[in-house]
Nucleic acid binder design. Structure first.
Lengths: 227, 227, 227, 227
DNA sequence: AATGAATGAGGGTTCATTCAT
DNA sequence: AATGAATGAACCCTCATTCAT
């Protein structure tokens, strides 16, 4: 019946409202300092109702993160769709990640906050599953492009596309994290401009995984030499 | 007289006992989940006594981290002392970090846990100072070697040694963190051996920052091709 | 519906139960020495529940005091209602305060304990407000009668009714406090019967603020000469 | 021997140093918030040593109060010595108390703080004794003057001098306490100038206990009419 | 006499989660 | 479905006092 469907729709909508409220609170306070009371109040629902839709605070946290993952995926997807060549797709992917960092800093932080926490005990298996699917999707997109780059002879045959993805993502991530919360430290204590470092790091790694042909095409795109 | 000295020694020893007890508890539970009660019990002292030696839980946490920093520095220092050439010193430094990761995983985790936390509010200024000195010492050692590498023509003149250090450390760190808490995930979901990725990443980056001369010398040392 | 009203009633009842439990504990131990554990136990509720109804220990303390204020107001109000003339209302007011002291010694103590404490830091603004209203109500009643006395020519035109109230209340209070906690001291060390002193003090002050007409009427009521 | 005497002197001096340090700390923090650690540090002695000279924190508090009592007595004594007549001695006594309030507010507060506390459990019997002697001395002085006033026909025969003292002291005290911590409240909420009230209260009571002869003499001294 | 290290009981407040309605 | 009252365990830090040296 339509009744059933309407119910389902309303239920889904309610889930979204809760996530939106939680997003606001988690962004402001962080996982530890946010309280279910605050979230319930922000959602204009009772605390009990929140638990009807999400099994725990940590589940809710992951739900918020999944929104972030979706945003990131969409940014990637849109960007890639626009780029005419594999090389450009590759480059625009890297840019998109920096863009995501710039535009959605709070989601970026959530991703990495969770990495260093051993608090995954309260997460329900279902939510963990969903969360991993979201991440997988992003991952597949990136690896796909790299694989294509190898096939087209832009990237080295002797390096596995997935490994390349890990290396690139990993280095970029790490530097973005530093930029996020210790930009001033690097700047003032050591005189290092981390944004410059990030550009260099990306260049170094890209060139390192490229073939001669790839590098040639690459340099036609970017006029910026390594230093 | 000796009386005073003995007292001092005993006091220092007591501080150590407390740090040891705290180390055990923090390793098991993490900063948040460790309680001062547990630490006091592990130290076989009253809770009040702990506060006689350390001003807060966070101070105590930093004290534990300083032990880790010292271990890392000593490993670096010993390693570097053994290496006959700048290139070897550079290589052995990277190896030492991996060794530190392998041997002292818990300290490694503490370092990165603290990065994503802005909970340093209860830290006493003295302890913060000491802690920074420990970190600085390690950093200076690494940058010193890179600088030497540039001077000797092994490393590119156009890249700042401190920046090189950031890039290398950052990429390595990021991968080690993945290895630490998601090794199995990469292995089984994606078939990626992260330790291999780490080796490749290191190689890629090292070669990327080297001069031709450096690379030549480097390849004589490592027989392992990039893939 | 009735459901909502019943809930409200139960909630109000619960608040009362808590105040009653708190009253018992605060009377026995005082603000400092009473613990929320004791209060919770006395109320047969969990500590968390107490905080659901009162925001802090100090709020709860004020809630108890407000009961005291209400009792005092009601005593005043009843007494005044019975008295046929302004003079009698004035006299019965003074008697009522002594009666309050005799019957509700513990509340009396609370009032004066709070005066010497500047510990109102944890008090919620709402509770502070309510508390002040309670006190104001009592005050207005007393000043109203004195004002009436002036208007009727019983009390001196040259003394402000509010000031009279302060003087009378202040002197009475001070002596009652002495009676409360040092009656025996005055009795045995100095042979002074403080209750007699209080009667004299009241007489002296009343006569001092009266007009001739007032004094004449007054003496017709009290047969007790000053000594 | 001189040795013994010197020791005694040193001991007494040490006691004084400790009281001075405690005075400073108690004035700043109050009884509850002052800690023995602070006092020991202020005295430049170890905490253990403090306990060698005073049995408890509360004993020390009383020791500080005794200094206050002595100051008050000396002020009274000096003032009385200067006054040529009994009436003037009586008036100057009242002024001296206000002066004490003005100059030594902290001691004044201590006196009244202790009244409302049931914390006398830790006070040693000896200290309690000493403390009472100090208060007694002040009291005897005041009552002596009043008695003299009765003998000289200034004050009413039908009122006991000790009772008069209680009434006067009690009323004054009570108003001073209000001035101390609620001056602004009376001023702004009710438009009452408590210092004016205090003057009036004193006048009213003095006149009330005087004979005709006394009042005549009194009015020659003060030109200030009751309102 | 003097020290100061050690104690250990305490205490107000928070909050994720549950469950009767 | 929705509520929101109730729970109760948890937790860091304090401090007067003692006592071995």
């Amino acid at each position: 019946m339509g009744t059933h469907e309407r119910k389902e729709r309303e239920k889904e909508q309610r889930r979204e409202e809760i996530v939106n409220a939680a997003t606001k609170v988690f962004f402001e306070k962080g996982l530890q300092n946010a309280t279910m009371d605050e979230i319930a109040e922000a959602a204009e629902l009772s605390k009990g109702t929140i638990y009807l839709y999400y099994k725990s605070k940590e589940d809710l946290y992951l739900a918020v993160m999944n929104v972030g993952s979706t945003i990131l995926f969409d940014m990637f997807d849109n960007a890639v769709a626009k780029a005419p060549s594999t090389l450009e797709r590759l480059l625009i992917l890297a840019d998109s990640y920096k863009e995501f960092f710039a535009q959605h800093r709070n989601y970026f932080r959530m991703f990495h906050f969770l990495q260093n926490q051993q608090l995954h005990k309260q997460v329900s298996p279902e939510m963990r599953e969903i969360s991993q699917l979201h991440q997988q999707r992003v991952w597949d997109l990136a690896v796909g492009i790299l694989r294509r780059g190898v096939e087209e002879g832009l990237l080295r045959r002797d390096v596995d596309p997935a490994e390349m993805a890990v290396v690139l993502w990993s280095a970029t991530n790490s530097l973005l994290m530093q930029i996020d919360y210790q930009y001033e430290h690097w700047k003032h204590s050591l005189g290092i401009d981390m944004e410059r470092v990030l550009r260099h790091s990306t260049n170094l790694l890209l060139e390192a995984i490229m073939t001669e042909a790839g590098r040639a095409q690459y340099r036609r795109h970017v006029a910026v030499p390594v230093a």
